[in-house]
């Protein structure tokens, strides 16, 4: 050890000591220790914790939608008496033009939203990561070709390209997801490539090359893990945009098809009654707003933890 300055605080004890141990005894302890340190700096940011809370709430609501929702999200009540009712004790957020309980629809809509978010993340992130790291690591003509393809996708406005895809594939929630995923990977490829360019000339990559590692092994085992954190941050921050795009497609009638309780489509129906029955459009609008905000706050918090360079 070099003559490091001495910390003045007392040693932590118990579980914390185990997690923060400078001498982990197993792979798991080392990994958990890292995770704990990350959590500690994350939880120091109250807004990030609020964001995480919102996202967890969204997940819980989606899982237990059947239990939480008091009414069916699809079949409405009596069209003569229960149509467009304002928020009340029986219908917490009012009813829509089909006499359906808006609260139940929003609760079930969370499933659609989560479905979109998760699928887009699962499709777009790996594509972007792979294209970016391969392009950045190999360089040369591979880089040129892959990056020009990325540029082509980047040149289209997201919603317009998604519209074109949906128009070609036919409206529907699955096609909307594919369309959004296809339009959202290019920025990830860009980020991954920029990170890779910085990493690929570092000594630790040279060292693993000198051990005879194959190119796929270097990219997957050594480059990807380092790009992942900034990508996770970016994807989380993009979630809000993805939800809005999905809602936009739904609003235009190209996403989820009725009677599926999708928030964007719900806002679209509410548009007709915006002046007199404001709650029909406002309630799903608020849901979109809150969830988007939650993802943004979470992304900001994650950035501070995972990507200290980008933080102020």
């Amino acid at each position: 050890m070099t003559g490091a300055p001495l910390p003045l605080t007392s040693e932590p004890s118990g579980m914390r000591a185990w997690l923060l141990s400078p001498e982990p005894h197993s792979r798991w302890q080392a990994r958990l220790g890292r995770f704990y340190l990350g959590w500690r700096s994350f939880s120091r940011n109250p807004l990030a914790v609020v964001g995480l809370g919102i996202v967890i709430l969204l997940i819980l609501v989606a899982i237990f939608a059947d239990v939480i929702a008091p009414y069916s999200p699809v079949t409405g009540g009596d069209l003569r008496t229960q149509r467009l009712l304002p928020p009340s004790e029986t219908y917490w957020l009012g009813t829509d033009d089909q006499a359906r309980d808006i609260f139940s629809r929003i609760v079930h809509g969370s499933r659609v939203t989560l479905f979109i978010v998760v699928l887009v993340a699962l499709i777009a992130t790996p594509i972007g990561l792979l294209v970016g790291t391969v392009s950045g690591y190999l360089g040369g003509w591979v880089d040129t070709v892959l990056m020009r393809i990325t540029d082509i996708f980047l040149a289209f406005p997201r919603l317009i390209l998604a519209l074109a895809f949906v128009a070609a594939l036919g409206p529907g929630i699955e096609n909307a997801i594919i369309a959004i995923a296809i339009t959202s990977w290019p920025p990830y490829a860009r980020i991954a490539r920029a990170e890779t360019l910085m990493i690929r000339n570092s000594d630790f990559i040279a060292a693993v090359k000198l051990q005879g590692a194959s190119t796929p092994r270097i990219i997957l085992g050594h480059v990807v893990p380092l790009c992942l954190s900034s990508l996770i941050v970016r994807v989380t921050l993009d979630m809000a945009g993805i939800i809005l795009t999905a809602a936009g497609l739904g609003f235009l009638g190209l996403g989820a098809q009725p009677p599926m309780p999708e928030w964007g489509a719900m806002v679209a129906t509410g548009r007709n009654y915006l002046i007199d029955q404001w709650w029909v459009a406002a309630m799903p609008g608020i849901a979109i707003f809150v969830v988007s905000l939650g993802f943004n706050l979470l992304g900001d918090g994650l950035r501070d933890v995972l990507d200290p360079k980008a933080a102020k």
């Binding site: 982990p24 570092s202 000594d203 630790f204 060292a207 005879g212 050594h222």
Partner: peptide, 23 residues
């Protein structure tokens, strides 16, 4: 691969030659 089993290298900067996310 045979070459790398015969010849290995140690780099200048120990802060840059170890992967920061690998134990």
């Amino acid at each position: 691969k045979a070459f790398y089993r015969t010849v290995q290298m140690v780099f200048q900067d120990p802060y840059a030659s170890l992967h920061p996310r690998h134990t």
